[in-house]
Design a protein around this nucleic acid. Structure first.
Lengths: 188, 188
DNA sequence: ACGTAACCACACCGGTCGGTATACTCGCAG
DNA sequence: CTGCGAGTATACCGACCGGTGTGGTTACGT
């Protein structure tokens, strides 16, 4: 699943850009092939269907986001996760690709639905782990997750760019109420 | 905008059901007309375009949700708003129609984008007002809004049906940390 | 009696949808 | 030198897309 041919890589790259910016249904296979500088034939030789390409797009995106998150979290406090989110959203102005994909394919038996669920489950575990390492109860991790998803939605669909900062403020209140460390993370 | 002909009403009703369940782009005008038991001609005579019908769908849905929220909030505490959300999501299992619509049309100049922004702004003001009436600072209202959006996303795309209850628990912690009333709302 | 708004049935338009087929070129390994 | 995987180019398929046009039928207000 990881070793693709050159033309295959160009196709996922083009599809990823187009799917994220315009939505899944709004982007046809013809446009994907043309943007990638290859042909529809190659697309179907490599991936078999548009649905499979959509699933791969989301898998790749999940990997990308997780590596971005993990790398930028080094040396940051728990509440600093919202600064990483703000950093991420500076370039990714169309919000959460998984929430967007679910809006289009949710409720069907699309192969990408599994990827969406896995991503959200991964994030939940990440936040719970973050809380555990800080000596906080799991409920605090769940709360962080809620704030994170809310901030992502409101920063994009809600048109409130300061939402991640507001989420950070809320998280710090919750953290300090738990009687833990003063969370002196570097912001920005 | 409010007084529609009988066939027009049937069309918005059919379109609303179909758009919410399957997404906007996934539903064609032919299907809408057929489901409504009318014709495409009537659809275009009443609304002019599919885009206008989409905008009207979201406006109607906003009205419906607000009346549902306001009615079910009577006699409830601040944190009870998450019980209302859980009640709402019991029937509306495809999540927030506005977030879903934004996923499909965000970034374009679609007439529905304004409706989406207005809905999110209305909710923000509602939560801030809720906090004010309880003698709490506006930041608490913003926090409630973040938890509300996060709970909606996680209950649907995230596959975590208990998300509204978890959001309520987080809200109660924040409320009690503010040294206010003990928030003895009836749940359910 | 007349005009008109609302509606239905149906045919039509150019374009695009996801997906397939045919035929050809290239590089490389046996 | 042969076979094969990867790639290109292009034509094609039925179905559907959003949107329009024509013509005819009610019901109602004047």
């Amino acid at each position: 699943m990881d070793t693709l041919t050159p033309a295959g890589e160009k196709l996922v790259a083009a599809a990823s850009r187009l799917f994220y910016r315009h939505g899944i249904r709004a982007v046809g296979v013809d446009l994907i092939a043309e943007t990638a500088g290859t042909t529809k034939k190659t697309l179907y030789d490599r991936f078999g269907s548009k649905d499979a390409l959509v699933a791969l797009y989301l898998e790749r995106r999940a990997e990308y986001w997780r590596s971005f998150l993990l790398e930028h979290m080094r040396g940051r406090s728990v509440a600093g996760v919202f600064d990483v989110l703000a950093l991420w959203l500076r370039d990714q102005d169309r919000g959460c690709a998984f929430v967007n994909a679910y809006a289009e394919i949710g409720g069907t038996d699309h192969p990408a639905e599994r990827v969406i669920r896995e991503e959200k489950a991964w994030m939940r575990e990440y936040f719970v782990g973050l809380a555990r390492e800080a000596g906080l109860p799991p409920e605090l991790g769940v709360e962080l997750h809620l704030l994170y998803e809310g901030a992502t939605v409101l920063a994009t669909a809600g048109g409130v760019p300061e939402a991640p900062a507001q989420a950070r403020a809320a998280a710090e209140r919750a953290l300090s109420a738990c009687g833990s460390a003063p969370t002196t993370g570097s912001a920005g």
